[in-house]
């Protein structure tokens, strides 16, 4: 059974909502990313998105763009990011891994080789933000054959596409909370609750909400209407603020503790 399905099944029994954090792998370096993933799990994360840094992250706002730039200065590749999953597992992390990558790095790797490695290194799901259903046929077939979940995004503007997208979804449906790029924001799309209800109607799968969620209050708001809450930029920003500590061996533990306590605070 795919670990994502198992995690959601367990949460459902317990009446809980998944907390799904995101981090950019290699910001500031791979060992620190692995240490952060461990902290995230201890803080109550139920699964984690491993972000592959990319030179042209169209769907991302300034916070994740900066994290990508830092990671790329360290020449972090998609291969390093996939390997990170296996290393984190070896370090004792139990939760499912979801790889978040733009399409071109996967394409250049070779889609079949990419999918084989994803499976081999213990990644359960894929989010490819610039691969709408019109373009995802080849990746979806490869993923399906390997039991990897290709998790699609739906947006408040998707309208009658919601049904078509949800039908092809695996793992869960990623609902974009507001129009625009990733990043912390105070307000969500005005029709967000109707939108979530539409998605709920369209699928048997769990639904998770992301884009702009940064506080316990916002997490709580969506716990009622969705099965998972994704927090990206807020965590990446926390990592950015903590960089001076993370990069100093003497203060590294203190930095990691700050990230853990921030994420534990989101979980409530």
């Amino acid at each position: 059974m795919n670990l994502i399905d198992a995690a959601f099944a367990k949460l459902k029994q317990e009446g809980k909502t998944a907390l799904i954090p995101f981090l950019t792998i290699g910001d500031p370096d791979i060992p620190t990313s692995i240490a952060i993933i461990q902290e995230l799990e201890q803080a109550g994360a139920d699964m984690v998105e491993l972000g592959v840094p990319y030179s042209d992250p169209l769907a991302d706002g300034p916070v994740i763009q900066r994290a990508s730039e830092r990671a790329l200065q360290n020449r972090i590749s998609i291969l390093d990011c996939i390997e990170t999953a296996a290393q984190a597992r070896e370090a004792g992390v139990k939760m499912p891994f979801i790889l978040f990558t733009y399409f071109n790095p996967a394409l250049q790797f070779g889609l079949e080789a990419f999918m084989n490695l994803v499976v081999e290194k213990g990644i359960s799901g894929l989010i490819i933000p610039d691969l709408p259903i019109e373009e995802d046929e080849e990746v979806r077939q490869l993923a399906e054959a390997k039991g990897v979940h290709l998790i699609p995004l739906v947006a408040p503007t998707s309208k009658d596409r919601v049904v078509r997208i949800s039908r092809k979804a695996r793992g869960f449906v990623y609902c974009v909370s507001s129009l625009g790029v990733t990043g912390v924001r105070a307000e969500f799309h005005s029709g967000i609750d109707d939108f979530l209800a539409t998605v709920r109607e369209a699928t048997e799968l769990p639904i998770a909400v992301g884009f702009g969620i940064s506080s316990r209050e916002q997490v709580e708001r969506f716990e009622k209407t969705s099965d998972g809450v994704i927090v990206g930029s807020a965590i990446v920003r926390k990592i950015e603020e903590t960089l001076p500590l993370l990069n100093d061996a003497a203060q590294r533990e203190a930095g990691l503790a700050q990230i853990r306590s921030f994420v534990a605070g989101l979980k409530g």
């Binding site: 769907a59 610039d130 709408p132 019109e134 995004l153 947006a155 596409r161 997208i165």
Partner: peptide
Amino acid sequence: ENGRFGKFGGRYVPETLMNAL
């Protein structure tokens, strides 16, 4: 109809833009 010139072209954009396109 999918914006393809042979294998080239297409619409590799986030879902948030699809409706506008």
